[in-house]
């Protein structure tokens, strides 16, 4: 799997700056995902059941074994058979909409980036015949859409309407998600994880314990990583409203050190737990996140 060719349509639509100009979330997700998929040589994902649903035109990436050759002989066109129950997993997207996510110096704020990412993942999952569910949370579950094959539009609608919430707290919503999930599946958590690593681990561990494949997307703005402010700046916490005056000559270096320690701690702990953890810089294109999802999807299929 190669990276998108620079300048190609897929690469262009994976750029956050371009995505920010598309207001229709479904169109956005479709554009991204179709372009993304079209860049792949082969669709590695297959699904089959005994209940015929419909014919559809062959699309690049479909397994050629699914082509109905009889129909081809009659119509001289390639069609593949669709079957009901082709979906073999459920994908639950958990998006952190706490106030801290409403920050961004890149073209997209973390919340918009997470919204776009969630939309694309939902569309991609739906296209792969997975059942799609959505949970929006800050310190509580603000909205939850249970996974279902036909919940894509509902999920996209919720994502398009969402507003930033209040203070964030991972444990309570994710524990609730774990408790309410009846089937194992893929749980994608999109958050900035502004909690001590132990609390984050404690919150996520319940999902893993219940047999879910957990994918964590850690969204950080470049300013959160580099802290490009000088001593003349006062910073205000988006969630608590606490202000702090930057001082000291090496506060930025200290900050970056603490952030890196935080990230490394999370990464280490999640590796230990077998949880897929991906740090996303919101100034980066979406492809890394999509690839990571597809890799997790494949892993999930293989593990079943």
């Amino acid at each position: 799997m190669s990276a998108p060719v620079r300048g190609s349509a897929s690469a262009r639509f994976l750029d956050p700056a371009v995505l920010g100009r598309i207001s229709n979330l479904e169109l956005l997700a479709k554009t991204v995902v179709e372009g993304f998929i079209s860049g792949l040589h082969r669709s590695p994902f297959v699904g089959r059941s005994m209940d015929f649903a419909e014919y559809r035109a062959y699309m690049p990436g479909d397994d050629i074994r699914q082509i109905d050759w009889k129909l081809y002989s009659r119509s001289d066109r390639y069609y593949v058979k669709e079957f009901e129950g082709d979906t073999n997993t459920q994908v639950t997207l958990a998006l952190d909409i706490s106030r801290s996510m409403d920050f961004g110096t890149a073209p997209l704020s973390k919340l918009d980036y997470g919204r776009t990412l969630a939309s694309c993942l939902a569309y991609l999952a739906s296209r792969q015949r997975d059942r799609v569910g959505l949970m929006l949370f800050d310190d509580e579950v603000r909205e939850q859409i249970p996974p279902a094959a036909k919940h894509l539009q509902r999920a996209l609608l919720s994502l398009s309407r969402l507003e930033p919430g209040g203070a964030g707290d991972l444990e309570k919503p994710l524990v609730r998600l774990a408790d309410t999930s009846r089937r194992r599946g893929i749980v994608v958590v999109i958050s900035d994880f502004y909690e001590p690593p132990e609390q984050v681990v404690r919150a996520v561990r319940g999902l893993k314990v219940r047999g879910n494949d957990v994918l964590l997307f850690h969204l950080l703005d470049p300013a959160e990583i580099e802290l490009p402010y000088d001593e003349t700046t006062d910073l205000e916490d988006l969630e608590s409203g606490v202000r702090i005056a930057l001082s000291g000559g090496d506060f930025a270096r200290q900050y970056r050190l603490l952030v890196q320690q935080h990230i490394e701690t999370l990464r280490t702990r999640f590796i230990e737990l077998g949880i897929d953890y991906t740090l996303i810089d919101t100034s980066e294109p979406l492809d890394r996140a999509l690839h990571r999802y597809l890799a997790g999807r494949l892993w999930s299929m293989k593990s079943r």
Binding site: S100, M101, F103, K110, D192, Y194, E195, D221, A223, E224, Y229, E231, T232, T233, D234, L235, E236, D237, L238, E239, S240, V242, R243, I244, A245, L246, S247, G248, G249, D250, F251, Q254, Y255, L258, V259, H262
Partner: peptide, 27 residues
């Protein structure tokens, strides 16, 4: 005088900055 911006800069979380040990030194 510390030349401050008139309005504070919003920031997602001060979780790490509150732990920066050199704060207020040489104020």
């Amino acid at each position: 005088r510390r030349r401050r911006a008139k309005t504070p800069q919003p920031f997602p979380s001060l979780m790490f900055l509150e732990n920066v040990p050199v704060r207020s030194v040489k104020r």
